[in-house]
Simulated assay, not measured.
Amino acid sequence: MEQALYRLLEQQQIRYQRFEHPPVYTCEEAARLIPDLPGAECKNLFLCDAKGRQHFLVAVPAAAGVDIKALGDALEAKGLRFASPERLKNYLGLEPGSVTLLAAVNDSGHRVEVVVDAELWAADAILCHPLVNTATLSVPVAELQRLLRHTGHQPRVMAVPRRG
């Protein structure tokens, strides 16, 4: 999967910088194990509504605490919650710890809505896992926009509600 992503990035002429590192599962581990990289650190959430009919890939600044209930209200998704590892594998082809905006490339059926926090989208570049948690790509936001357009995903850019 990772190699297919790199081929797609090359075909679409998407610019990025790649950094390898030990596996990271949380933003805290990433901050500790990965040196300062050029780009905004982000946290990615894979969420679904209570009935499992709507799915969302949400990206926010790494330090942001998300108010899931308020986000569900804003997205008109009742009972918004974290999706199971099985759903993550089924919808985005990922394992826990590898959730990334770049996973939109695996959603050819357009079953997942991409949501990006406006503050994050205003950055020059965003740090993204390349479908695995052993590397990080620094991708300029304009390049991410082009890639998401290519995949047929128009991100919903919004002020994602924060916790207290």
Rank of each mutant, 00 (worst) to 15 (best):
L92E: 13
E119H: 11
P155T: 09
L37E: 14
A63G: 08
R18N: 05
A50R: 15
N90F: 13
S108Q: 06
M1C: 05
F82Y: 15
H129E: 08
P96C: 15
T134S: 12
V141N: 03
L120C: 06
A40E: 08
E20M: 06
M158L: 07
L9E: 04
R146W: 02
G93M: 14
R146N: 00
R146A: 01
Y25G: 05
A122W: 13
D67Q: 07
L5N: 00
L92A: 11
P140D: 12
G152F: 05
L148M: 04
L120W: 09
R111K: 06
G52K: 14
D49G: 07
D36H: 13
D117P: 05
D49H: 10
E29K: 08
V114E: 01
G79L: 14
H21S: 05
Q12A: 03
K78R: 14
A103Y: 03
L148T: 00
A59Q: 11
P155N: 10
Q3V: 03
V105P: 00
V160R: 02
K43G: 06
C42W: 06
L80F: 14
A159M: 07
I34E: 09
H150M: 05
G52T: 13
L92N: 10
V112H: 02
A103R: 08
C48V: 09
L45M: 13
E95A: 15
K78L: 09
V139M: 09
N106V: 05
G152I: 07
F56P: 00
Y6S: 00
L120D: 04
E76N: 05
S138P: 13
L127V: 12
A125K: 09
R15V: 12
H55V: 11
V116D: 01
Q11E: 11
A64E: 11
E20Y: 08
D124S: 12
I14C: 02
L47S: 07
C48S: 13
L127P: 05
A135Y: 12
R81S: 12
V58S: 10
C27W: 13
R162I: 11
Y6M: 02
F56S: 05
L75D: 00
L88V: 10
L144A: 00
L71F: 04
A62E: 13
L137A: 13
T136V: 13
F56K: 04
P35S: 11
V115W: 01
I34K: 07
H21F: 08
L88E: 12
E113L: 01
V157H: 02
R162A: 13
L137R: 14
I68P: 02
V116I: 15
V60S: 09
L144Q: 00
C128S: 06
T26D: 11
Q145N: 02
N90W: 15
L131M: 11
L75M: 00
H153E: 04
L75Y: 00
L9A: 05
T26P: 05
A70N: 03
N90C: 10
L147K: 01
L45A: 11
A122Y: 11
A122P: 04
P85F: 15
Q17R: 07
L127I: 12
T134W: 10
S138V: 15
V24H: 09
D67M: 06
